[in-house]
Amino acid sequence: MLSINAFNTYRIPQIFDYYRPRDLREALKLLESVEGAKVVAGGTDLVVDLKYRRIEVRALIDISRLDELRFIKLEDSYVEIGSAVTIQEIVESSIAREKLPLLVEAAESLGSWQIRNLATIGGNLCTASPAADTAPPLLVYDAELELVSLRGVRTVPIEKFFTGPKRVVLERGEILRSIRIPVSRNVFGWSYIKLRRTSFDVAKASVAVLLDARDGYIVDARVALGSVAPTPVRARGVERSIVGLKIEEAARVASERVVNEISPIDDARSTAWYRLQASKTLVSDAVWRAYERLLKIGV
């Protein structure tokens, strides 16, 4: 560990070069050629890490103003969001509000207005915090991530993207270009519930639920959680166990089953024991709320 005297949050106590490429291709070239370079978007995670000297960099490549990464578009079967789109832009996007209400609900709970104006969706995913608020919704939406490098493009389902706390499948020279979210013809009830210490905080535990039901029986359920495992997790076991059940049953079973799919730890925000207890309630609450929303939409 670095000495306490190495911290100085008035400064970024490191010396590095700063690049602002004109386009994505230049960004990729820089990333490939500049020794010790790292991508920066909103900087709301990275700058904190630099100040606390959790990481050292030699160069930053600023992608936050690249038009190629700043779009939200609606295609036939999917919505595509550029990685440098800010969280506040998602909150305010009419496409997102109409097609991705669950993502919007999660985005609204992220940080404060000031943070949301800087923070990007790409940064939120690439930081790979187990608490990243956009991850559980994107997990249940079955989002796909498009990664680009000078070598080409590849697509990775979000469930395969996170490999551990602060670890993702991005390789050297790769940038997350966009997030592609299939839009189903089905109507879902949705719910994002986030438990936190104060209303301006990272999650102690969070749950995203998408739900479809017919005649009071669950016909499709998708559940993902944040902050209760080394990565954001999709709770497939919970999903399987509640399809076909009546809502009351479903909420109860979901809350029982969720403990098998998470492995929370103690940290600054909460304890493992509490997270486990709270997750049970959170999942049940989220299932109920998604169901009630579904009824309101009127199917």
Binding site: Y52, T198, S199, A268, R269
Partner: peptide, 16 residues
Amino acid sequence: AHRMSLTDYKLPTSMD
């Protein structure tokens, strides 16, 4: 322990 910055020493906001 933990509370080395305002990230983890939380104060209620007006919303709370």
